[in-house]
């Protein structure tokens, strides 16, 4: 069971350590059902930390996103550990970053928060519109209870969880230095129904589906920026020499962008669903990711973000990889 007292006390203990720079966790947002990332560097800052079904953000992004400011001459860079609070899916990002040497195991202190599924805020906002005051929520058996100005509202998980949580097979962190409370029982199973449904359609129907989605893309790059695995400082899709994808927003360039994004995540996507969550025009990005996830599992017997010692999928091969389609 979620124990906020313990969470805050643990965070205080961690940030009191000399070898820890700060802890990254969640805190209540400024309006509605929003929760925001919180960087606590001092013990008293840890009081704001929270954990609830509203803690959607995958904070692992900040492990690589944090800007490394130039170190003034004569000063030493701050090499202290960063402590990070993770849900199950978030922890897989940590593992995959370790696989890709984005961080060292010593450089990060992982605080595990077993999680019973976080909400799809868009669904919740639709359910309870016009909630402006900060609202809270907690898990209660198979329900999620929202604490609204006019009292508590119980909603079944099925109604408010995003698909990635409904299917989740890793609700418990797969890597941690410390676990805040007991592990929860995993509930998910993966049959890729949604992927198969689209696969079963004709190429024309599939293109009609995606053409519609890609056409609506604004190229805001939120999906890329929020993704914990998209950590290149200089993304190839931003480059001008060579220009892989033009900046103009049209179907061709948008498609090219989305293909490149999905391809670059093949064998790396850890199913946190952040890309889809932040998309302002609701492009089902996880469908692309899950399609490749399915191929990676089925063809290459590989699952990213589980084993920190694994060799990256796209940096390895098996001589007997399937090749039935090769002429």
């Amino acid at each position: 069971m979620v124990d906020l007292e313990k969470l805050r006390q643990t965070a205080k203990d961690i940030v009191s350590r000399d070898d820890v720079k700060h802890i990254i966790g969640w805190k209540q947002g400024t309006y509605g059902f929003r929760v925001e990332p919180h960087f606590a560097a001092e013990p008293d800052e840890a009081d704001a930390l929270t954990f609830s079904p509203l803690c959607t953000n995958n904070l692992a992004t900040y492990l690589t996103l944090a800007e490394k400011l130039p170190v003034p001459r004569g000063e030493e860079p701050d090499t202290r550990k960063v402590a990070l609070m993770v849900k199950g899916c978030d922890s897989r990002a940590v593992v995959q970053l370790l696989v890709e040497q984005g961080l060292t195991r010593e450089g990060v202190y992982v605080v595990g928060c077993p999680c019973s599924g976080v909400v799809d805020v868009k669904k919740v906002e639709k359910m309870f519109p016009d909630i402006l005051e900060p609202a809270q929520a907690y898990w209660k058996n198979d329900q999620i209870v929202f604490q609204l100005p006019d009292g508590e509202k119980e909603v079944s998980r099925e109604e408010v969880l995003p698909q990635k949580c409904l299917l989740c097979r890793y609700p418990n962190p797969v890597i941690y230095d410390e676990l805040l409370w007991d592990e929860v029982k995993a509930w998910g199973s993966e049959d890729y129904e949604d992927v198969k449904e689209l696969e079963a359609k004709s190429p024309e129907e599939r293109w009609d589906f995606w053409k519609d989605k890609f056409s609506s893309c604004l190229r805001c790059y939120s999906c890329r920026n929020v993704c914990p695995m998209c950590y290149c400082e200089d993304c190839v899709l931003d480059r001008l020499n060579p220009t892989w994808t033009f900046r103009s927003v049209n179907l061709s360039e948008n498609t090219s962008y989305h293909l490149a994004r999905a391809f670059h995540l093949a064998g790396r996507c850890i199913e946190c669903g952040e890309c889809e969550r932040v998309c302002p025009v609701d492009i089902p990005l996880m469908k692309l990711n899950r399609k490749l996830y399915k191929e990676v599992v089925e063809r290459f017997d590989y699952e990213p973000g589980i084993d920190p010692e694994a060799t990256p999928l796209q940096a390895s091969y098996r001589p007997d990889d399937e090749e039935d389609f090769i002429l």
């Binding site: 890709e100 040497q101 984005g102 950590y231 290149c232 400082e233 200089d234 060799t311 990256p312 796209q314 940096a315 390895s316």
Partner: peptide, 13 residues
Amino acid sequence: EATCRGCAYCVEI
């Protein structure tokens, strides 16, 4: 060097 992210895929490959 300026853009290399150090993921070491190339080393593995």
